[in-house]
Amino acid sequence: MSRPNQPVTAGATELAALLVRVADGDAAAFQAFYDRTSAKLFGVILRILIERQESEDVLQEVYLIVWRKAATFDASKASPITWAATIARNRAIDRLRARPPRAHVPMESAFDSVDDGPAQDAGLIHDQDARRIAVALAALEPRHAAAIRACYFDGVTYDELAAREQVPVGTLKSWVRRGLIRLRDQLEGSQA
């Protein structure tokens, strides 16, 4: 039985088939699994440990575990890549905890460190989007706009809002739906 929220992709099916062969001791399948997943797993580990040399050590341990434990992989519980990434994350965290206190990262690794924050112009683009949405919301019937704000920006549920405002849930939903349709029309119009 597969989980409804995890669409089974073609890639996941192939990886799962490879794992089945790995469980039988098929070295070629293991090589193929390594080729397809190692870059991702290395990224997972490197983000936790920062140090490249140590991350490579951990990556090797992770594939040793994959080789030994492929038979325990259960496709109904997780996708193959999620399963492997979980092993990688756990091993990396174990290594992090085992580090002596105040371990230092070599200075030269600072040159390679990646800024994970939003790109420099993302804030500007976000501001522009927010302004366009505010303008579009202001043009809606005020009750529709207020219901959209409450449900989408403030996280109020339809049920709570209906009870608070003494409006039937169905009425609220139709206000939100009509509001969203107008909103989409407006935003598409302003883009052209």
């Binding site: 009750r143 207020a146 009870a163 039937p168 849930v169």
Partner: peptide, 21 residues
């Protein structure tokens, strides 16, 4: 349930008014 709820008014903690209106 909708018909049941129309019989109730509610004063919430903090007022819970729509700031935008």
């Amino acid at each position: 349930l909708d018909a049941h709820r129309t019989r109730f008014g509610m004063l919430f903690q903090g007022g819970a008014l729509f700031d935008s209106l």
